[in-house]
Design a protein around this nucleic acid. Sequence first.
DNA 1: CACAGTATGTCAGACTACTGACATGAGTCA
DNA 2: TGACTCATGTCAGTAGTCTGACATACTGTG
Lengths: 153, 153
Amino acid sequence: MSQGEPGVELDTSLGYMLKAAASALHSALEAVLKPLGMTITHYSCLELLAQRPGLSNSELARGTFVTRQSMNVLLQALERQGLVVRPAQAPVGRALPTELTDRGREQLKVASAAVRRVEQAMLADLSPADQDQMRRLLTACIASLSEPPASAT
Amino acid sequence: MSQGEPGVELDTSLGYMLKAAASALHSALEAVLKPLGMTITHYSCLELLAQRPGLSNSELARGTFVTRQSMNVLLQALERQGLVVRPAQAPVGRALPTELTDRGREQLKVASAAVRRVEQAMLADLSPADQDQMRRLLTACIASLSEPPASAT
DNA sequence: CACAGTATGTCAGACTACTGACATGAGTCA
DNA sequence: TGACTCATGTCAGTAGTCTGACATACTGTG
């Protein structure tokens, strides 16, 4: 069934390659986080809270690229497990500032090291200059995709 | 709640940026495919079949980065909709070579144009040289992630 | 003040993709 | 030939995320 690569155009499509790279990263992260009993979103949430303490549910959702409904489900689980805490009442508006507990920080420490190893493995063959290039390119892509479709005028 | 960017290290993490870019692309693709009544995997499957006719269920799964079980469910749906056809019996082994129908090609044509527009929008600010760079960098990342963890020796 | 508009937290149901499991067919090797 | 290994197709159950909906709280404008 395999017939080498016809080289049609999939192999050069940056959209496809971006998906392939993200998928490979996703699988690698899953592989190291699963033994720790964590999902990727679970880890992302803790990491985000460590770097930006006091983020609300909606802000965490945006930062981890899921809906606020999904993040809400996750936060309730993390709260039950004693990894994060939220005040019973919002200090202002409806947003509940979330904080890591010591237990949460502890769990994150192990996971964070594992994730860092995966990221370093991914970048093993890239020079510092390459990595800067990649940051610039990805930033440009994100910016262009975030703009409105730019209707013809 | 928002407090600018502390610039901790999330903003420079290539893993995070890769995820952000893939997420932005995913959302943009969803937005253009949904009006056509297609999901991203649905489209990816048709596109792959157009460029590599006769791929089996498992090969399509690998090409679209889902499990063969998920692809099987999708293929059965596409078959019911008359977009693809598979022989009742495998010509060799168990693999069933899948082909697009005229109806499948027709649906793909519209979707493919929409997807191409999204990809071009994403690359709007990137020179041809930039795009080549990006291909090289993504390829390197994928290759490094695909290698075994490289135990210490 | 009253009102519309926007952002948030949360519950419920639906969907997509996943893991687990089993049977079938091809290739390898003694 | 028979045993073993591997890849494939498929069914069933599970988990994570999504959409839809509603109530609440801040903001700006008349």
